[in-house]
Each structure stands twice: as C-alpha cells, then as structure tokens.
C-alpha cells in the first residue's frame, strides 16, 4: 500500500506510523464526562469499507495526514494534511 502524502507524493506504507481512526482529531473538552472520553479513546465505528485514519509521515516530511481509504480493498482514495481538516 502506498499513501499519497500531500507534500511528498505517493510513498510506501513503511514510511508511515499508523495512529488510528480520525475520531481522535475531535478531542473532548477537559471537563467532558466519562462517556465523551470513552468515545474518544476507545469506541470506534471500525467500518468495513470507507474509513478515515491518521498517519504520521515519520520517515518522510514529518507531516500528520488524514487518509481516506477502503478497509476491504486497501484502495486509497485520498489524503490531506490534518492542519487543513476542519475541527
């Protein structure tokens, strides 16, 4: 699998560290209740199909990117820098 880093272009999966579902972009407020933190830390949609997840271009430019891809086929549909992802 190759991931299209918006800065470096198509790069091998080995260059990236996998963080997990993009749900972790939406960090709850510090005073949010246990359910909100549980949802953020543990609960996942875990879709069989299109998903969005976070990868770190560790052996490349060092950017964090959000990748849209298909978990059934490993087809990669796109990627963007997370600083551009609306909160």
């Amino acid at each position: 699998m190759r991931l299209p880093c918006p800065l470096c272009g198509d790069r091998d999966r080995r260059e990236f560290y996998y963080q997990g579902a993009a749900v972790t972009l939406n960090r709850p407020a510090p005073e949010a209740d246990a359910d909100a933190w549980d949802a953020y830390l543990h609960l996942r949609d875990n879709p069989a199909g299109e998903t969005r997840d976070l990868w770190y271009h560790e052996a490349g430019c060092g950017a964090w990117i959000m990748v849209t891809r298909n978990t059934l086929t490993h087809e990669v549909l796109g990627a963007e820098l997370i600083e551009g992802v609306p909160a």
Binding site: G20, A21, D38, L43, R44, D45, N46, P47
Partner: peptide, 15 residues
C-alpha cells in the same frame, strides 16, 4: 463492530 451496530452499539474494537 458490524453486528453490534445492528443493536445500536459502538464497540471498543478495531479490526
């Protein structure tokens, strides 16, 4: 995750 979603649940599971 898919089957639990049929019962309205979201699980702490990643496949």
């Amino acid at each position: 995750s898919q089957v639990a979603a049929m019962a309205g649940m979201r699980l702490p599971i990643e496949s």
